[in-house]
Design a protein around this nucleic acid. Structure first.
Lengths: 225, 225
DNA sequence: GTATAGCACGAACAAGCGTTCTGTGTCAAG
DNA sequence: CTTGACACAGAACGCTTGTTCGTGCTATAC
């Protein structure tokens, strides 16, 4: 509010330099480095401007500590920079292969610990369920999952489990059909109802011993560009 | 290979301390801070151990620079920490509202600079196109996008643009229908073909002046748990 | 004309911090 | 028993880095 909230050009440049330097060097700059970068020849002028930025809650300073300057969350949001909070970490999920209608999912006994760079999906932990163990990804091959509104080429993030509770979207192998399908799973008395995600389509009913739950779907991703 | 690859307990503790301190303070520790933390009373012993860790490609040192120590990627992977590579940053995309069939998308002229924490999608930059300006998210309301295999509740990540090239998945407003739809866009002579993503459904044809491209879809997200 | 605030500057100083030097102890190998 | 490698230790030093002080210029308010 008012003129006091405006930043001088020098102050704006200082903030940008701190952000860029910290990203690049994994540590904040010194007072002298800031001065050199924004064309201030005196360390006391840098200190004066940092004090002003601290008043505006854009930097935090620690006295008599080398490189004791950091940007506040408010400052980082000014840049639209990705704010890496403790709970929003990147999670890398291996793409274990493909999901194809005519064969069961092969997730094997791999421990997912060594995998190629090309075969991972990176997601923010905030987008995933709390329990992030046993996650893997499969890429859909073919049009057989369209009733689940999952297209050829989509990526399905799954949690490895062999049971389902009502409403779970699961990958099931149906023995009698020799097919894998993605559907919402419901126990109904002595049979299992498999409900497509597409509300215009009807369910199918199978004997419990005819289905094998191969995993629970936690997310579907479609990249269109 | 052999004993020389093993870390001493001191060296292991030093790496862990550097990692933890850097996460917590947004800057690396000093030689003296490391010494205090792992019970080494002499700065020269810390320096000696850091030199050993550098030989093993676990830290990088910069000479005669305060806090000039950082962990290598190899060291971070040892902890199973999320590896934040330069190209894999978290990007936060605001959820600007809903996409509903009977009204055009309202993205307004907002600059996306202030938004609630609850209304963002966090994604790895590796999952997004190179050009990440002008991205926003909309949550789908209703079943009108089912021909695009997009379900009620799905999140659509869009890029703000008003033109389309052939094959782009776009959100278009059709004046004569008074409807928003998501379809693949093709110029065909003097008309526009809008092709549903569901391969079992046929295209619609509209006059170019009857459609308004409101954005290009770059990703669709469905959370099922 | 005076006072105040904002912004700038150089110099000096103080504290932080990394490097170097010298010395010691332990252990394994010869 | 000797030697060499490894790990450790304290002290001193030198450089890096942050703080303080005094000064100057401009704009604004009274």
């Amino acid at each position: 509010m008012g003129n006091s909230d405006k930043l001088s050009k020098r102050q704006q440049a200082i903030l940008e330099y701190i952000e860029k330097y910290t990203q690049r060097h994994s540590r904040p700059p010194t007072i002298r480095e800031i001065g050199e970068a924004v064309d201030i020849s005196s360390t006391s002028v840098v200190t004066y401007n940092l004090a002003k930025l601290a008043e505006k809650d854009l930097v935090v300073r620690e006295r008599e500590v080398s490189r004791g300057v950091s940007l506040t969350g408010k400052a980082r949001e000014m840049f639209g920079a990705a704010v890496n909070k403790a709970q929003s970490m990147l999670v890398r999920i291996p793409i274990k292969g493909q999901i194809v209608a005519g064969q069961p999912i092969n997730v094997g006994n791999d421990t997912f610990e060594t995998f190629d760079e090309d075969d991972v999906v990176e997601l923010a932990s905030s987008m995933l369920p709390k329990q992030q163990r046993d996650l893997f990804a499969l890429r859909v091959s073919g049009e057989s999952m369209i009733d689940a509104m999952v297209n050829d080429g989509d990526i399905v993030i799954m949690k490895q489990q062999q049971t389902a509770i009502n409403g779970d979207m699961v990958a099931v192998w149906i023995n009698s059909d020799e097919a894998t399908t993605l559907k919402h799973f419901y126990h109904e008395g002595d049979r299992v109802r498999l409900q497509p995600a597409n509300p215009h389509m009807g369910p199918i009913y199978v004997a419990p011993e005819d289905v094998l739950v191969q995993g629970k779907v936690v997310m579907v991703l479609r990249q269109t560009s």
